[in-house]
Design a protein around this nucleic acid. Sequence first.
DNA 1: ATGCCTTTGTGAACGCGTGCACAAAGATGG
DNA 2: CCATCTTTGTGCACGCGTTCACAAAGGCAT
Lengths: 273, 273
Amino acid sequence: MATGRTHRPATRSRGIPEATVARLPLYLRALTALSERSVPTVSSEELAAAAGVNSAKLRKDFSYLGSYGTRGVGYDVEYLVYQISRELGLTQDWPVVIVGIGNLGAALANYGGFASRGFRVAALIDADPAMAGKPVAGLPVRHTDELESIISDNGVSIGVIATPAGAAQQVCDRLVAAGITSILNFAPTVLSVPDGVDVRKVDLSIELQILAFHEQRKAGEETTPATTPAVSPAIAPKTTPAAPSRTAAGAGAPAGAGSRKGPDGDVPAVMPA
Amino acid sequence: MATGRTHRPATRSRGIPEATVARLPLYLRALTALSERSVPTVSSEELAAAAGVNSAKLRKDFSYLGSYGTRGVGYDVEYLVYQISRELGLTQDWPVVIVGIGNLGAALANYGGFASRGFRVAALIDADPAMAGKPVAGLPVRHTDELESIISDNGVSIGVIATPAGAAQQVCDRLVAAGITSILNFAPTVLSVPDGVDVRKVDLSIELQILAFHEQRKAGEETTPATTPAVSPAIAPKTTPAAPSRTAAGAGAPAGAGSRKGPDGDVPAVMPA
DNA sequence: ATGCCTTTGTGAACGCGTGCACAAAGATGG
DNA sequence: CCATCTTTGTGCACGCGTTCACAAAGGCAT
């Protein structure tokens, strides 16, 4: 998936492990589905299967919340939905601002999953004056100038950044200065924030690259391993023969990598980010 | 962030830890930025700062790839860009199909990060006949009927699912049957796939819920802890007084959670997923 | 050529997360 | 009321990932 905490080990919130917190929404979703089908109780085995996790892990996760199950029976669906919702803070309303109303921002604004679950889009903000006032997903786009007032007026504490990479840090700084303490970042940049501010990032290209890695690995193992000889199990010996000429190569333009044919593949294609 | 592997511990690909693989794209991005600025070499300390990680971690990560640095100097930027690109499989072309051209699918199709880095959108696929032929991001939308032929004709091995949750598993099954072995799932569902198929998921609402958890925690600690008494440090005693009446409560409609006022908060709001 | 200074590469310790396996708890039937 | 059967809750061990800290390596100045 495309998630990843940003440094700061999250300080083991109130004894609940971060890994468990990350799975609670998964359980909640499965439980909600059961609830809609009016299923009264569910065993750890069944629920684990629905959530795609190990049943022992699920039980241990729930044990951090308390003893909400009944031995020999399982868990009461409604009760568990309530407990997890409360634990995640979904029993209250969370106003959210989305900054950067391009293709992605508009898609997020229209995303149904936002409205439910206690999240409410308080405002859509964009730097383009031409966008101002234009309705997106039923809300008029506001200009960046209003960012600070919107946040303080609505008591917003969660911000979503969907701007281009170049603007992300600047927007982030303004959000933080305005009082935002949680940020969901869709821009392909590492954001630096002061302590006390949580950042989670969603990065499409990183996810794709991870998939490509495994894909390449599959291809290299199944077919002729000669096509990707670079993927040899042995660690390359130190002092790689092709490396040394660096001070000379790097001095000019980014042409070094292209012309350097290493001991492995010869595909030079290295393009900008 | 919004990522998360799906079961299957990834089998420690070729000795490179999964956690390291997940960071390589981050390093690559930072290195590419340096490359564009024609910076010849970079130290582990500098690069780590740019990527937002610990320098020791970065050095260990690189050590899995080989000894590409020079002691006393640092790493050659161009060379490292090439090595990481090759390791990630970005020196080859990866055709990708996007299924589900709604708001999100269209946003993804327009995403610039796709085109660069070796990923090429081979086709946009949607189930709505009205969408067929309509151009999105310069490509005509194809109908789902053509899914199998598109995949086999273009040798696509990576698929992106941006459909509603209800259709995701079905689309997934067809993609897998057609030969796809890597899936990036944006639909809020747990996909079940056969062994050998990698799934990564990007889930907006999960990310928001995780942020909400921490946000609630911050609020509960800083302000009056009385507003959210549920977040008491003590584990709830077993046999919670409100739980027992389950077979009766769950039998009807999902109204149990709403009326049940636990020992803590009284906000019942529990809405569908 | 020699010594100093910088930076890498990694051995080792630590901590978190996962999964096993089982005892305790409770429901259910006789 | 007792026996049996199901399912939870968790103690324990294992493995991965992170971090520290340092020796080895190489550049650079003298």
